[in-house]
């Protein structure tokens, strides 16, 4: 009965046909669904494949041939050229260490706050939590001019510290939100037992709570890593010298300078996204989990 009804639908959500044999129409319906899903997958992924293709082509090939053609004679030289000519190595290194430091600071500071809010009783805890939650809603662009002026006054313009402080702070609200869910669902018995045994709060935090929250810490660390790695506005506004630019900003300037050299532009972009894609390849489950955790809490 339900199968019959399903078969006539064309834009549907099919879950019929479990158990016994599927009808011809049901199979056709599934085929159609796979077609939609696959078409969507192609749209999501083909631009990146096309990018890799043209990073290996010469300009003549890009201009003359179909966008779906494989590189005839892969121009690996494009990669050598962009890696050796510009400062990509420096940008890459800056991205790595600034990201690592910001992620570490965000995760540890957020853990401190979440621990104090969920494990201790104090009058102002609701207010403090509220401040962080509202902080999540504030558009960072509204803070940009005062921040610029502030860093300028204390001599932190064109200093990586301004980037690390800003990234750390603006990621705190989301990180605390994710940690909060985990801490609340987490049994307190072990910590309470430790208190009974006369453990100091610091020991409880560092030796019991932190190790036990490693699963959620790694989730938040990965999400923070992606955000910081891709961060644009702070670096674009606060950093001016090449020495401190990150990959995101570096490639943006770099690409502008190549103008019409498609191969070089493609190679630069590929270099900038490979680290993220590799991370995704190995940690996709964690990333999926973190993305979902960060959003639904709203």
């Amino acid at each position: 009965m339900s199968e019959l009804a399903t078969d006539r639908r064309t834009t549907p959500n099919l879950s019929a046909g479990e158990g016994s044999k599927k009808s011809y129409w049901s199979k056709l319906g599934y085929g159609f669904l796979y077609l939609i899903l696959s078409a969507f997958a192609v749209i999501q992924i083909y631009p990146l494949i096309w990018l890799v293709f043209f990073s290996l082509k010469s300009n003549q090939e890009v201009f003359g041939m179909s966008p779906f053609s494989l590189p005839q004679d892969p121009q690996w030289g494009n990669y050598v050229k962009v890696w050796t000519q510009g400062n990509i190595g420096v940008y890459f290194f800056n991205s790595v260490w600034m990201t690592v430091l910001s992620v570490f600071l965000t995760v540890i500071l957020a853990s401190f706050v979440t621990f104090a809010i969920t494990r201790m009783h104090w009058k102002l805890s609701g207010l403090v939590l509220g401040l962080f939650m509202v902080g999540y809603m504030i558009p960072l662009h509204s803070t940009l001019i005062p921040l610029f002026n502030f860093y300028n006054t204390i001599g932190l313009i064109d200093n990586p510290l301004s980037i690390i402080l800003s990234q750390t702070t603006f990621n705190l609200p989301l990180t605390i939100m994710i940690l909060l869910g985990f801490y609340k669902a987490f049994p307190r018995e072990i910590e309470e037992a430790a208190v009974m045994d006369g453990c100091s709060v610091h020991r409880i935090f560092f030796q019991i709570t932190l190790p036990m929250t490693i699963p959620v810490l790694s989730t938040t660390a990965i999400i923070n890593m992606i955000y910081n790695w891709n961060e644009f506005v702070f670096v674009n506004t606060f950093i001016s010298s090449d020495q401190w630019k990150t990959l995101t900003i570096g490639i943006n300037n770099f690409v502008g300078q190549y103008l019409t050299d498609w191969g070089a532009i493609g190679a630069t972009l590929v270099i900038s996204i490979v680290p993220i894609l590799l991370t995704f390849l190995f940690l996709s489950n964690k990333i999926v989990e973190g993305m979902a955790a960060g959003s639904v809490k709203g």
Binding site: W229, N230, T248, I251, N252
Partner: peptide
Amino acid sequence: IPMLLSSVA
């Protein structure tokens, strides 16, 4: 996957 790339890229 596109969600993981930087806006600049």
